[in-house]
Design a protein around this nucleic acid. Structure first.
Lengths: 112, 112
DNA sequence: TTTTATAAGTTCTTATTTGGAACTTAAAGC
DNA sequence: GCTTTAAGTTCCAAATAAGAACTTATAAAA
């Protein structure tokens, strides 16, 4: 079964996962909530390849979760900002954060 | 960067994603919350391949999110049930459900 | 006036993961 | 015996991801 076939699934959890349920998308959204908005920030902060970031940003914009906004005319440069639809995803990320804090403590001293 | 390297990331969201942030794992957990516990149920309800279900169940058990319990001695048969750690994941799934209900309504008449 | 730097991607090749179907094992029921 | 059920495993082809280098447009420095 192809993953994208879940987008019309009866279950709203499945539909949500068809959009953001891959490995990097939620990490990009986390980054947005922490204040990132530019391509290279996403690359640096998530650790994903440029290719992946490029692809995932496209999907997120297409889905109306992020919006591409020009922040420089010459050269043309864009940044990605959360839409209302995207901002409403915060409860999910907070739930992930809380669960991780409680159940997956870091063992060794974490470095930045 | 390998995905599993996120397990010691400073960010609790990233650590959580290193465990459940792939395409099928959250769908298996959703199924558990809806009452599934057996291999073939997961296969039927998620649409993932047997191979994937097998792999993801192993990871979830290893992580202490699910527990393997024998429900038949001869032949030996096991089912998978949520641990307390697993049950505490429900706020995240509910957040996904709510977001999906609001922002990803199904277009056509859904079947089953 | 070449050289360097910055930002946002794209392209290329190789490696890893996934999909789909068939096969296995163990026992029960007909 | 033959079929069915449950829980996996195995195999190969196809899709996806990793990593590094390259591109485009412009500004700033040497």
């Amino acid at each position: 079964m192809k993953w994208t076939d879940l987008d019309e699934n009866w279950c709203p959890v499945a539909r949500t996962l068809s959009l953001v349920g891959d490995r990097w998308t939620l990490l990009i959204l986390r980054d947005c909530f922490l204040g990132s908005s530019r391509f290279d920030q996403f690359v640096a902060n998530t650790g994903a390849t440029r290719h992946l970031i490029s692809d995932r940003l496209k999907r997120l914009v297409e889905a109306g979760i992020l919006e591409k906004q020009a922040y420089s005319e010459r050269p043309k440069r864009y940044e990605y900002v959360l839409t209302e639809k995207g901002r409403e995803f915060s409860p999910a990320l907070m739930a992930f954060r809380d669960w991780g804090k409680k159940h997956l403590p870091v063992r060794r001293t974490s470095k930045a």
